[in-house]
Design a protein around this nucleic acid. Structure first.
Lengths: 318, 318
DNA sequence: CGTTTCGATCGAATCGATTCGATGCTATCG
DNA sequence: CGATAGCATCGAATCGATTCGATCGAAACG
């Protein structure tokens, strides 16, 4: 840039201002600088140098589990999409941080901790030591982190109540690995069905859900309703039930969570719709505020139960 | 870091070496430096400063379309997963670049151009001007970019030949928006069926495929086989066919592309299996080599047709 | 014993901008 | 007409490390 300034016959500082526009520069000067830049093949200020000076990299990390599992669940995408949209509008980029990797050494302005079911995370201490703002989505409430959550407990309780109203008395639940959402939802479920049976933990994956619930039925598992922790799980349970000649919801009711589209299922699931895009936007806003040094309140997003065709009156009311 | 060096009683350069380990430092010195760092609450060298000095940011951008559409197709994930794995092992991070956004201003060491069906891209000129290495996956062969591709043409021709062998003479094809893979595959198809009918362009999306092929059938479209450009499209065609009472493959054969799992379909698709993970690894290796300044050869990955239950003898051989 | 080598350490230059405070100059105002 | 702004520009300090070349002892060598 020094060369450009020299070629344009202005000082280095003026050239800088011509590019950044942070202070007024006369039009003829700017044109002269840009012309000189063009002539010298200068592509604009070096981002690395600007980053050092400004103390920011413009990059926000997002901790996900393995990419292929994190994004397999269709609930993850609209959320990340919304995060990305808001951050892009602010000129920031989103960096994927698959689990296990220590991404120390990368200059991150903030980190979003999302999706991964893991409770602990190696890089946490390091980030805190560096003073990197942390936004935790549906995770453990770490000290110093801003916290974005969803009404898991209320959603789960609403579904349970819905099934109870339909006469169900013997329900079972497919769970996730222990995690904040799982604990909250289980608490909500037990508000209504203190005795609900746990089928077992299961990834939010169609095939996994089929196999876990299948094994449970093989072992003589019985329930008039199966409550799942995601729509993908619920779809797996529906498919597995049908494979066994069970009618949904005639023989067994199935409820999901998330409220995502399952176009390949000829049935609308009863589920808890969570505001995925708004969750992403709220997360991104929290990130930007924290980068700006503001104090940010935690966020709790509302959910809404949607009754579909996968739940019906209990087959054998107690 | 200057404070740490002072506290440890060594020079700034020695302190730097103690952290980076790029030159030997006596053990007692290193311990003294690390102790001083701990006492002063110093979390290690500032990545921004290191980046400026070394001229690298450790961040690789990947241009995708909209996130939610780019990752909806299950073929995209294993590929990106492999890219991420290789880059992480090299200490680099992957930054998502949704389309439309000018990510100028972010310090990228290289950019992967993938997935997005778009042929042009605003940031291209800027990146070239900056000398940022570009790796293009299945895209147009831009000057200066390293090119990673898949045997689209051969795969498409193999499927066409397979159907021809089964007696099909009247086939139709669901296409993608104009793009490099689409053009190659269509060329492969026409090696065998020069007259193949084009149903229409369609995103790689289940619902979109259903509606496009449904409209075609409504308009009196006829064919004994429908060749699709992704397994997701093929699944959509299968579901739509059944919805109309057509048997697959009895009344109509359906072929896909990619070779991804479709567990919610009770049918294994005839498809062209492409080495998704290897594609990702090859891409990442190309990126790393180009960042290292090496000259990199273009890559062409092999495909293999897999015959499943979605194709069978033609219903009405000509 | 003189000399070469090697490892550890240090001082200083460098990476490429941004930005603060100062300066000169031209309108505006009373 | 003198004082007060206000705009454009400039010089110099700064961001926080990495790294080249030099220096100094001590060990290895003939």
């Amino acid at each position: 840039m020094a060369d450009v300034a020299a070629a344009a016959g202005v000082s280095l500082s003026t050239a800088s201002l011509a590019f950044s526009g942070k202070k007024p520069v006369s039009e003829v000067t700017r044109d002269r600088v840009l012309a000189a830049a063009g002539a010298l093949g200068y592509a604009g200020p070096n981002p690395l140098a600007r980053n050092l000076r400004q103390g920011r990299s413009g990059v926000v990390g997002v901790a996900v589990g393995r990419l292929s599992t994190a994004f397999r669940d269709p609930a993850a995408l609209p959320m990340l999409d919304a995060v990305s949209e808001v951050l892009d509008a602010a000129g920031m980029g989103l960096l994927l941080m698959p689990e296990g990797d220590e991404h120390a050494g990368l200059p991150l302005d903030a980190v979003i901790y999302d999706i991964c079911g893991c409770e602990t995370w190696g890089a946490y201490d390091d980030l805190v030591a560096r003073g990197v703002p942390l936004v935790v989505v549906e995770g453990p409430a770490w000290p110093g982190a801003t916290y974005v959550d969803v009404e898991h407990r209320r959603g789960a309780a609403d579904v349970a109540r819905h099934l109870h109203d339909l006469g169900h008395r013997h329900v079972a639940t497919l769970t996730l690995e222990p995690s904040h959402p799982q604990r909250e939802r289980e608490a909500g479920l037990r508000e209504v069905f203190p005795e609900a049976e746990v089928i077992g933990p299961c990834a939010s994956d169609l095939v996994a859900a089929q196999s876990v619930v299948g094994a449970w039925w093989d072992d003589g598992g019985e329930a008039t309703a199966v409550i799942c922790q995601s729509d993908v799980q619920a779809a797996g349970v529906v498919l597995e039930a049908r494979r066994r000649g069970l009618d949904v919801p005639g023989d067994v009711s199935v409820a999901g969570f998330d409220g995502v589209a399952t176009p390949w299922l000829d049935l609308e699931l009863t589920t808890v719709v969570q505001p995925l895009a708004e969750k992403g936007r709220a997360t991104a806003r929290a990130v930007l505020s924290r980068i700006a040094g503001e104090v940010v309140d935690d966020v709790l997003l509302p959910v809404r139960m949607r009754v579909g065709g996968s739940t019906g009156p209990a087959a054998h009311p107690a």
